[in-house]
């Protein structure tokens, strides 16, 4: 009873809440880091150094008037933010934050579930998220959101191909679809897959930027062109859901990248015994540090680069990334066969 029901439920509760808090603080982090990059201070008023800003933002968004445009498709308009939020959250079910922890005399695994097809689950759930954007654009009954949602869906579908192809080459190396097994494969082969699959990592990173609609691929919400993108007509909590979904997706992408390429919860150089003194740091800390570095790079990129144009983005996706990913996959396959 406890093992089958209570603990998983507790884990879900903790992960869900940690994610939501993490997401709101991600927003603050982004504002702060970008502000520093631009010789500003960022939020400073709410709490010391603005650390309570997310709370204020949340309150503001919740008490804002919730507007539905008169000629909108009401049901779809309401469903769209939910559709984009839910996939971003349920993906966390298979992300291994750590290996095992002993708590109250029990061995508790630091992941909600380790299903056999973990990676495929992430990809398929993430692919449903695109509906939120398409439907938001369609149901708003307004031109800018429509244009933005067309851009977004074309972008997501194209980059999904490249990203999934890189994941396949990682699967080939690891020999498993399970997230936990992939980390263990990195442990047993004594190397992070980042060094085995550098090209895959690069493509995954670029694709990850595109799939989360981040700069320089933030066309779907390019404020300067489309006034706000697919969520132009949204306000209040529904807007907040889109906003949170974007950041939740960023965290998902960085968690997946950490798991697949950076050795998940493993400490750096897990095979070097000389670094054994680092063993006192629990695995989940390494996981969080690695993901954080990733998120930081996401923000850094946004502060530095201009935005691609829509057609250039598609060209990059289809004519550069996908061929490279296929090439990488083929080479990986050949090497794998030769080595066996």
């Amino acid at each position: 009873m406890i093992d089958n029901l209570v603990i998983p439920l507790l884990k879900i509760l903790i992960v869900l809440n940690a994610t939501l808090v993490g997401v709101t603080y991600m927003v603050l982090l982004e504002r702060k880091v970008i502000a520093w990059a631009q010789s500003r201070l960022g939020p400073m008023r709410v709490g010391p150094y603005g650390i309570l800003q997310p709370v204020a933002d949340a309150i503001k968004l919740m008490i804002k008037e919730d507007i539905t445009p008169v000629r909108a498709d009401k049901w779809v308009f309401t469903a769209a933010p939910i559709i984009s939020m839910v996939p971003a959250l349920i993906v966390y079910a298979v992300i291994p934050f750590g290996d095992k922890a002993r708590l109250f005399g029990r061995d508790i695994t630091l992941y909600i579930s380790d299903i056999n097809v973990g990676l495929l689950y992430i990809v398929s759930v993430a692919s449903v998220g695109v509906y939120g954007i398409i439907l938001a654009g369609y149901s708003s009954n307004s031109k800018y959101p429509l244009l933005a949602s067309l851009r977004a869906s074309a972008q997501l579908i194209s980059y999904e191909v490249a990203v999934t192809l890189t994941l396949v080459s990682v699967i080939l190396v690891a020999g498993s679809l399970s997230m936990v097994q992939i980390v263990r494969a990195q442990e047993s082969s004594h190397v992070w897959f980042l060094f085995v699959q550098p090209l895959a990592f690069a493509i995954f990173f670029i694709g990850g930027l595109a799939e989360t609609n981040r700069a320089p691929f933030d066309m779907p919400e390019a404020e300067q062109e489309l006034t706000g993108g697919f969520h132009t007509e949204y306000s209040g909590m529904r807007f907040a859901l889109f906003f949170l979904a974007e950041y939740a997706n960023m965290i998902v992408v960085s968690s997946v990248a950490t798991t697949l390429f950076l050795g998940g919860w493993l400490r750096p150089f897990p095979n070097v015994a000389a670094l054994g003194f680092l063993g006192f740091i629990p695995g989940w800390t390494w996981f969080l540090i690695k993901s954080f570095v990733f998120l930081y790079i996401f923000i850094w990129v946004r502060a530095t680069l201009p935005r691609y144009r829509y057609d250039q983005l598609m060209r990059l996706g289809w004519k550069v990334l996908i061929p490279l990913a296929i090439l990488n996959l083929v080479v990986t396959g050949i090497v794998k066969v030769l080595l066996l």
Binding site: I34, R40, R307
Partner: peptide
């Protein structure tokens, strides 16, 4: 101009 093309840091640098 840079902001229109998405490079927002340049905007704040230039205004500085």
């Amino acid at each position: 101009h840079a902001m229109d093309i998405g490079a927002m840091t340049v905007f704040l640098y230039a205004f500085r």
